[in-house]
Simulated scan of single mutants.
Amino acid sequence: MARSRGAAVERHPRHERRGEARLPGVIATLVAVFLYVALPQRLLIAPRFVLPALELLLLVPLVAINPRRLTRQTTVFRVLSLALVLIIAASNLTALGILIHELLYSGVKDGHALLVAALQVWLTNIIAFGLAYWELDRGGPVARTQSPREELPLADFRFSQDENDDAVEEVADGASKKSDWVPTLVDYLYVSVTNSTAFSPTDTMPLSSRAKLLMSVQSVAALMTSLLVIARAVSVLH
Rank of each mutant, 00 (worst) to 15 (best):
Y36N: 04
L115W: 14
V108C: 10
Y190R: 09
F129C: 03
A132F: 08
R232N: 13
L103R: 14
G130V: 10
I126A: 00
D162M: 03
R5P: 05
K109V: 11
N195I: 13
A132N: 11
V26N: 10
L84I: 00
A143V: 11
Y133L: 09
Y190G: 05
S216F: 03
L82C: 13
L189D: 04
E102A: 10
A38C: 07
K109E: 13
R144L: 01
L99A: 12
P141Q: 07
A7M: 13
V182W: 08
V50C: 01
E150G: 11
G111Q: 09
G19L: 00
Y190T: 15
L44A: 02
A21C: 04
V121W: 02
L103V: 15
N125P: 08
L189E: 09
L62Y: 04
A233T: 02
Y190I: 12
E163N: 14
F129E: 06
S208I: 01
L213W: 10
P40S: 00
V171T: 14
S176M: 13
P201L: 02
T202C: 11
R144M: 01
L136Q: 13
R68D: 02
T225I: 09
A211E: 04
A83W: 05
A172P: 01
E151D: 06
L56Y: 01
L44I: 05
A231V: 05
Q120T: 14
K178Y: 07
P183A: 07
P47F: 02
L136H: 13
L35V: 11
I127F: 07
P61W: 01
T94S: 15
S176Y: 10
V26I: 12
Q218L: 05
V37M: 09
A175H: 11
D110F: 09
L70P: 04
L23D: 05
A89L: 14
Y36E: 01
R68C: 00
I88N: 09
D180R: 07
W122T: 14
L39Y: 00
G25E: 06
L84W: 08
I88H: 01
W122L: 09
T71A: 00
V121I: 12
V229G: 10
S200G: 03
L114W: 12
G97R: 08
D162W: 05
F77W: 11
S200C: 07
F49D: 03
K177F: 11
D156M: 04
V50M: 02
V234N: 06
L70M: 09
G130C: 02
L237D: 11
L213H: 03
K177N: 08
R68W: 06
T184Q: 15
A155L: 04
Y105E: 11
G25Y: 01
S200E: 10
R158K: 10
V26Q: 12
A46W: 13
R17D: 09
A155P: 08
S179T: 12
W181G: 15
A7Y: 10
R42K: 03
